[in-house]
């Protein structure tokens, strides 16, 4: 660039400096991390061999185990995901309404809603599950609540964005007729966000099916419990069966959601 006569530059000096500083910070962080992280190199070299060993132990897959306990646990997992998604709506809809600035205009209500939505998203579903297992004891209930609390942030945020994008014409028209607050919500807002609502809920349900499959590792019910028990007993062929079942259900859930969304939009 310097040899050219015209001094055309793609970025200003400030842009360049800030970009390079990001690169440098990242590089320093990376070097510092690699120097301080506690990794035993022998384990790393050994990894492919150990992986191969694990997979040979998984073979052949114990298909008989499916009817013994995988099937019931899988149904329970699906129930946790579905019920969790439904319970989420109880919290997510009011929070979304509070967060959308064309429904409630006060900044205080936005802050309150945002606080709940952000803290719901910041805590991982496994951590939520740990908390609820401590409160309600191990079992399905902890799983449902963990899924529900984790999903509130996601559903609430997307729903608020969908509400903010609607056409305000019908709302004004309804208000002009003297419609009550509830009918404005039900007849003005609701029909307009209906497709977005179902698509968000289905999308979250798909994620929740994946998440509920692992909640059992901390005792919150579902297929994770079966997986954990089989793993603790080193019954790798049963582990493989559970993993296969999870894989199949996750793929199936994704296909169902994609198909329904295609019809919806």
């Amino acid at each position: 660039m310097t040899t050219m006569h015209s001094h055309w530059q793609r970025f200003t000096l400030k842009q360049k400096l800030s970009r390079y500083s990001v690169y440098i910070v990242l590089l320093v962080a990376l070097i510092q991390s690699i120097r301080t992280v506690e990794v035993i190199p022998e384990f790393f070299y050994d990894a492919p061999e150990q992986m191969a060993d694990m997979f040979t132990r998984m073979w052949p897959i114990d298909f008989a185990f499916y009817s013994v306990s995988v099937h019931d646990a899988m149904i329970e997992t699906l129930n946790i995901a579905t019920l969790g998604t439904l319970v989420t709506l109880i919290f997510a809809i009011p929070l979304a309404l509070m967060n959308a600035n064309n429904v409630v205009a006060s900044p205080i209500s936005h802050w309150i809603a945002r606080f709940f939505l952000v803290s719901s998203r910041s805590v991982n579903s496994l951590v939520w599950a740990l908390l609820f297992v401590a409160i309600f004891g191990p079992g399905v209930m902890a799983g449902v609540l963990a899924i529900a609390f984790r999903s509130v942030g996601f559903v609430g945020k997307l729903l608020a964005e969908a509400i903010e994008e609607i056409n305000m014409g019908p709302i004004e028209a309804l208000r002009a007729t003297g419609a009550s607050w509830a009918s404005v919500l039900l007849k003005g807002y609701w029909p307009q966000i209906l497709p977005a609502f179902f698509s968000i809920v289905l999308f979250r349900w798909d994620i929740n099916v994946r998440e509920s499959a692992v909640l059992g590792l901390v005792g919150a019910g579902g297929i994770g419990v079966v997986l954990n028990n089989a793993m603790n007993l080193f019954e790798w062929q049963r582990v493989a069966m559970a993993l296969l079942a999870i894989f199949a259900v996750v793929i199936l859930a994704e296909i169902i959601v994609v198909q329904i969304r295609k019809k919806l939009i």
Binding site: E38, I40, F44
Partner: peptide, 8 residues
């Protein structure tokens, strides 16, 4: 299970 406990 394959590379042991820890950051790796």
């Amino acid at each position: 299970k394959s590379v042991g406990f820890g950051a790796l």
